[in-house]
Design a protein around this nucleic acid. Structure first.
Lengths: 155, 155
DNA sequence: TATTATAGTTAAGCCCGTTTAACTATTAAG
DNA sequence: CTTAATAGTTAAACGGGCTTAACTATAATA
């Protein structure tokens, strides 16, 4: 099996999955009174944990001024909290509150609701074969994060 | 194995994958001179084939007036083409041109570039085990589309 | 200590994506 | 044939997300 074959199969699967989740994602944005950048901020915090305003701005590709402004309503709604970094008192660490975490969780469930349909067209035997493959892939993605940010060299 | 276990494993894998692709997606939008809705329009056409303006508006959650306006620059850039529906001359079918298709292809490659890194932390043996699982999942997603829009009952 | 750099906030102003409303063209219904 | 409904386009106006610029506070440097 060629490397390119494996990659293109993986790419096709992910692209189709993302497309399926896209419609729910768009509806989620329009129905909530949150902007594209605000939603992305919540998801960034969900996956990366607490982050400085700086990092969020870099991730979103906008200025820190814009981030500071979009954070304010999120704070008012009780979705995020700010805390000073113990190392550098200039830095404000932004983190999800429990309510924020719950909101993202609901959004994730919503986006991927179509997975239930997918599950229905799979036999029990197929699912048991697929499960270890999915778990392996998920583990190895986490491994990528560890290699990129080794725990020994604190950044 | 419980149904919920399988679903949550699948959901975690997809959510993490989508998050990994998200950063490239955001950069893609900011660097191109296309709006969020324009990008989504191109991807919608990429996956669904030619669509009436009506459908696009419904998918994006905006009015047909807005769609009509965002299509104009895409048409000027040669990314899409309009054609009259043979059944109903009021309907304009929007489709990607070859240039539009190429642009989306490049964008997809870009978004999922991190898959190469994932591939590097997998052994050849693991990849050979994973490939049929990925292909099975992809096939079954397509099956969902067929069931939702059976070819016999033309819609 | 004095100077420079960095992190974040605030306010003013701009840009552009969207809505509303008015219009044309085509199809469906009475 | 007449009327009503649907698909799409166009232009004016609105609103919100972003940038720029000015500012405060903390940290690093000389």
């Amino acid at each position: 099996m060629s490397e390119e074959l494996f990659l293109s199969a993986l790419r096709e699967w992910i692209e189709i999955s993302m497309h399926r989740s896209r419609h729910a994602f768009i509806r989620n944005i329009r129905e909530s009174d949150l902007s594209f950048s605000q939603i992305n901020t919540l998801f960034r915090l969900y996956h990366h944990g607490s982050s400085p305003v700086n990092d969020l701005a870099n991730h979103l590709g906008i200025t820190t001024a814009a981030v500071s402004q979009l954070l304010e309503p999120l704070h008012q709604s009780g979705l995020i909290q700010r805390s000073e970094s113990p190392n550098d008192r200039r830095v404000k660490l932004i983190a999800l509150t429990d309510a924020g975490q719950a909101l993202v969780n609901r959004s994730v469930q919503n986006r991927h609701a179509w997975l239930s349909e997918l599950s229905e067209v799979l036999t029990q035997e197929e699912k048991e074969q697929l499960l270890p493959a999915i778990i392996l892939l998920t583990e190895r993605i986490h491994q990528l994060d560890v290699e990129a940010h080794p725990p020994c060299d604190s950044d």
